[in-house]
Write a protein that binds this DNA or RNA. Structure first.
Lengths: 197, 197
DNA sequence: TCCTATATGAACAGATCAGTATATATACAT
DNA sequence: ATGTATATATACTGATCTGTTCATATAGGA
């Protein structure tokens, strides 16, 4: 089995699902937009849901890699990286094809608690949280005076800002939700006794 | 035209749409779940989208009224009310039928920029923002030293926390996202020079 | 050349979707 | 009692959905 056709399908389907929604996108539309035959699609994926799961796996890898690579490009210190998180968020928002968070949207369309798609969405958010926690723990090590409970609590607070910014941007409450979240993050870091911010 | 049947339909449809999603709920399912005939439904609403818009109007009124009535019950001072916002949020999350924010979910299913449903969802968020801003402005008047730009910025930061909490709760990252947001709100208020918090 | 793997197009099945048509029932006001 | 408004059940239309079937094309390896 050559992998290229399958990967091509997943990559193209991602774009269509992201811009058009999952339920609103039929398999026939995918045929039209990707040029790949329906027969081929169902040779690679037993059901549409399986294709969606593969799309979300790709998006998870794509987004987390891009996001934290950009964070590392913008800053090297843990503190700098925590603030860079919100600059990268703003970069994401300013991309012309930004259409909200694919996982929030998917979890809205497939909201049954036992739906594999829903559960894969929650998994993505937990992975994003873990990556953020990792940076906060490095900051903790650097500064020496943070208990690990504070690290978890601080990470959750920063994560609240990040997810809130995605919603405010997607729902047109804010134009620069990433930068607003960054200012709030500065306050939270200072309030938690982080030095140097 | 007796209003009761129409209102009954909107109220019952709200429950079904909220628990089951908009696209995933067909008109035939609404007939089954509400006991109201399809003929009646289409006498009151020309299309399914019109029914959804009516449901969202009801939900907007319902949620904003309940939310800020509870806030006023819990506290009388502007500062107390700002903190109570997050207690009420937590109350909402702990309701056994909590299934996320209906407007975030609807805007995920109807994401075209010119879709009336999408636009009604953004409108709801703007109204929630305005109500929050009103409390912050009262606080501003009380404390006398806040410029109105700071009031807007502070409101946006609190709103970030509120929306983030909805996502973290709905996507199972946090169990008590409302209380976590409240702690962050305390820090933000202090960082913005609010006295008495 | 022949075999195999992978691709394609096109028609189809069976279900479900939004919305309509028709005929009928119920309740109330005059 | 009779007209009017609102309700009902049921069957239907035509479109669209996921997924299948089948016949065929293409390309590479032995």
């Amino acid at each position: 089995m050559r992998p290229s056709k399958r990967d091509e399908l997943v990559q193209e389907a991602l774009k269509v699902f992201y811009q058009n929604g999952f339920t609103a996108t039929g398999m026939d539309m995918l045929v039209k937009k990707t040029g790949i035959s329906k027969t081929s699609m169902y040779k690679h994926f037993r059901t549409k849901d399986d294709l969606i799961l593969a799309v979300l796996r790709l998006r998870d890898e794509q987004l987390r890699n891009w996001f934290f690579r950009r964070v590392e490009e913008l800053a090297s210190s843990p503190l700098g990286q925590l603030l860079a998180v919100f600059d990268v968020l703003e970069e994401w928002f300013q991309q012309p094809d930004f259409q909200g968070c694919m996982f929030i949207k998917a979890s809205s369309e497939f909201q049954r608690a036992d739906d594999p798609i829903y559960n894969q969405c929650t998994e993505h958010k937990k992975l994003m949280f873990s990556s953020l926690l990792k940076i906060v723990r490095q900051l903790e090590t650097d500064q020496g005076n943070l208990s690990s409970e504070i690290a978890e609590a601080l990470t959750r607070q920063l994560f609240l800002l990040k997810e809130g910014a995605i919603i405010l941007k997607h729902m047109r409450v804010s134009v620069s939700a990433g930068l607003e979240a960054k200012e709030a993050a500065v306050s939270l870091l200072q309030a938690n006794g982080i030095r140097g911010v």
